[in-house]
Amino acid sequence: MEWQTDILGADFESCAFEAAGPDGVLRRATLVRHVPHQAAGGSGPRAANGSVLFLHGWSDYFFNVALAQFWTGQGFRFYALDMHNHGRSLQAETPGGYVEHLDDYDAEISKTIEMIRSCDPLGEAPGPLTLMGHSTGGLVAALWVSRHPGTVQFLVLNSPWLEMHGSSMVRRAAQTMVKPLARFRPKTILRLPERGFYYRSISSSAEGEWLLDDKYRPPLAFPMRAGWLSAVLSGHTRVARGLGIDIPILVLISGASANGMVWQESMRHSDAVLDVNTMAVRAMTLGRTVTLERVDGGLHDVFLSAGPVRADAYARLARWIHGYISSGPQPEPPAGLERGGTGDMS
């Protein structure tokens, strides 16, 4: 296991690895860790509250330096996984973002957790593990926890994609149409309207404040393929049936959605990707202990929202951490969370 300085700069390291799923296929993934102010050979900060592992959304990668700084400031060790066919793990011979079964992520997530628990430089007990997921990564995280009870102690979901827009009827209709194609020609690209509204609201190359690398996160996302959509719809079906997760869960979503085929100014302060009311309903099927936080003015990723909204989202997350995970006085969130920061992307 070789850690190298990551694209985000000196406070981050990354390690590429391969994991074989039940089908025997080796898939490449990349683990990123936050090592603030760690000199060569240093031991890094103590983590009184254990570790957190972050899973990005579809057609995305980990770049949010402020998110890592927040978790480290709250007494956690922070890790993020660029899953196979995404971000740092992209390979020329495989289609970006593609997966035929969401369970195909299981092996790399399991191996990542083994790596986290084996690389503690201070020899501390591993402590509790918090799994955090955004959008499709939130769906993957929830399904993974439901299939691996006892492995993760806390679950945090940021605008998780738990259902199709509107209702389960929309999902069932989509499944009927895509299933035959997914079975016989799974990598067929679906010709659907492309919208770059969310990218427009977050990227500093458009009208946002976040420095994104377009080769890792393309403005119009990766092409949507039949097998991938079928995998997501199957995941939604499992969520709708109830996952029975028996650990504390936090779900953060925007206060409103803004959908449509033309740009609206409301997309600067709402979720332009998912139906937040549908997500709120589906969140209640995840388990018995679910906290739902609506962040007024939030974007699809509430931690990429405008400064004051982002600070509110972090405050809500800190309050939940203090209530469920941490012991002792509540630490102050790191300064500067109102400002976007993505480190050195050179």
Results as ranks from 00 to 15, higher is better:
residue 2 E to L: 14
residue 3 W to E: 13
residue 6 D to V: 10
residue 8 L to Y: 14
residue 9 G to D: 13
residue 12 F to T: 11
residue 12 F to Q: 09
residue 17 F to Y: 09
residue 18 E to I: 00
residue 20 A to I: 07
residue 21 G to R: 08
residue 21 G to E: 10
residue 22 P to D: 15
residue 24 G to W: 02
residue 26 L to M: 12
residue 27 R to V: 00
residue 29 A to M: 01
residue 33 R to F: 02
residue 36 P to D: 07
residue 36 P to G: 05
residue 38 Q to H: 03
residue 40 A to R: 08
residue 43 S to E: 14
residue 44 G to L: 08
residue 45 P to W: 07
residue 48 A to R: 15
residue 50 G to F: 06
residue 50 G to A: 03
residue 50 G to V: 03
residue 52 V to T: 09
residue 53 L to T: 01
residue 53 L to C: 05
residue 54 F to V: 00
residue 60 D to H: 12
residue 64 N to E: 14
residue 66 A to R: 15
residue 67 L to A: 10
residue 68 A to E: 01
residue 69 Q to A: 13
residue 71 W to D: 07
residue 73 G to E: 04
residue 74 Q to M: 15
residue 76 F to C: 07
residue 83 M to K: 00
residue 84 H to D: 02
residue 90 L to V: 00
residue 90 L to C: 08
residue 92 A to Q: 07
residue 95 P to W: 00
residue 95 P to M: 05
residue 97 G to Y: 04
residue 101 H to Q: 15
residue 104 D to N: 13
residue 111 K to D: 01
residue 117 R to L: 09
residue 118 S to W: 11
residue 123 G to E: 09
residue 125 A to N: 10
residue 125 A to R: 14
residue 127 G to T: 03
residue 127 G to V: 08
residue 131 L to V: 12
residue 133 G to D: 14
residue 138 G to P: 10
residue 139 L to W: 11
residue 140 V to C: 09
residue 142 A to P: 02
residue 142 A to I: 02
residue 147 R to L: 12
residue 149 P to Q: 07
residue 151 T to I: 14
residue 152 V to Y: 09
residue 160 P to R: 00
residue 164 M to S: 15
residue 164 M to G: 12
residue 167 S to M: 04
residue 168 S to D: 13
residue 170 V to M: 13
residue 171 R to D: 13
residue 180 P to T: 02
residue 185 R to P: 05
residue 193 P to M: 08
residue 195 R to T: 00
residue 196 G to K: 02
residue 197 F to S: 05
residue 197 F to T: 06
residue 198 Y to S: 01
residue 199 Y to A: 04
residue 200 R to T: 01
residue 200 R to K: 13
residue 203 S to K: 11
residue 207 E to G: 07
residue 210 W to A: 00
residue 211 L to Q: 13
residue 214 D to F: 08
residue 217 R to D: 01
residue 220 L to Q: 07
residue 220 L to F: 08
residue 221 A to Q: 14
residue 221 A to F: 07
residue 226 A to I: 08
residue 229 L to R: 12
residue 234 S to C: 05
residue 237 T to G: 15
residue 238 R to N: 09
residue 245 I to C: 05
residue 248 P to W: 07
residue 252 L to H: 09
residue 255 G to F: 06
residue 257 S to I: 04
residue 259 N to V: 01
residue 260 G to M: 00
residue 262 V to Y: 04
residue 262 V to T: 10
residue 262 V to S: 07
residue 268 R to H: 11
residue 269 H to K: 12
residue 272 A to S: 15
residue 279 M to V: 14
residue 280 A to S: 09
residue 285 T to Q: 12
residue 287 G to F: 04
residue 290 V to Q: 12
residue 292 L to W: 10
residue 300 H to Q: 06
residue 304 L to E: 03
residue 304 L to I: 03
residue 311 A to L: 14
residue 314 Y to Q: 10
residue 314 Y to D: 09
residue 319 R to E: 13
residue 324 Y to K: 15
residue 325 I to V: 15
residue 325 I to S: 04
residue 327 S to E: 15
residue 331 P to W: 07
residue 333 P to L: 12
residue 333 P to Q: 13
residue 336 G to S: 11
residue 338 E to D: 14
residue 338 E to Q: 12
residue 340 G to I: 06
residue 345 M to N: 11
